[in-house]
């Protein structure tokens, strides 16, 4: 393992990206700026993944989130032309913002407190399968994740097929342009 200082720097960089990006998302008035900010957060999370030896996920994170999801966001923003500014100074509902502050603060504080009281991680190690060892032989991260997905999570993996199909069908149904006649055989 390498020295502490680079790790620390990487963590700080990742944390800065994540937090600054996230704050940007919720404060920028223009959705495009929020989206750019979102990319920053996503990349920060990817860096945090790398820092924690989850290389495969780091790559997937960039490919799926930054490469597809945010592009989709931008596409829709531009497609609909909804990039006008939203007035964030107007409160949505009286008292909603303080309430949101309070509830989020309590929740996050509560979670952190719980985590620290709980000794952060209490689970048993290697119940399902170690990160880098599979069937007794050392394999890399990608292989380990792949094997886990196709064995332990086989059913979940198959379920994602259903999930994606339903999402695609749904998106097509919703976005399909209305035509004046839609089959007349229903009667």
């Amino acid at each position: 393992m390498t020295a502490t200082v680079p790790d620390l720097l990487v963590f700080l960089a990742a944390a800065a990206m994540v937090v600054v990006g996230a704050i940007g998302v919720i404060t920028f008035r223009n959705p495009v700026h929020s989206a750019i900010s979102l990319i920053l957060t996503l990349l920060g999370v990817a860096v945090a993944f790398i820092e924690q030896e989850a290389h495969f996920l780091a790559a997937v994170q960039v490919i799926v989130y930054a490469g597809a999801i945010v592009v989709l966001f931008l596409f829709v923003i531009m497609f609909l032309g909804v990039d006008e500014r939203e007035d964030v100074t107007v409160e949505p509902l009286i008292g909603q913002r303080p309430l949101a502050y309070a509830s989020v603060f309590v929740t996050v504080g509560g979670i952190v407190a719980m985590l620290s009281r709980g000794g952060w991680v209490t689970g048993a190690s290697t119940v399902t399968g170690p990160t880098a060892v599979y069937n007794g032989s050392t394999v890399d991260n990608v292989t380990a994740v792949g094997q886990s997905v196709f064995t332990t999570y086989l059913f979940a993996f198959e379920a994602t097929a259903a999930l994606l199909i339903i999402a695609v069908v749904g998106a097509v149904v919703l976005a399909r342009r209305e035509r004046s006649v839609e089959g007349g055989e229903s009667a």
Binding site: F56, A59, V62, I63
Partner: peptide
């Protein structure tokens, strides 16, 4: 995968 990520 880096290629895919960067092309994204």
């Amino acid at each position: 995968l880096l290629l895919l990520a960067m092309s994204g």
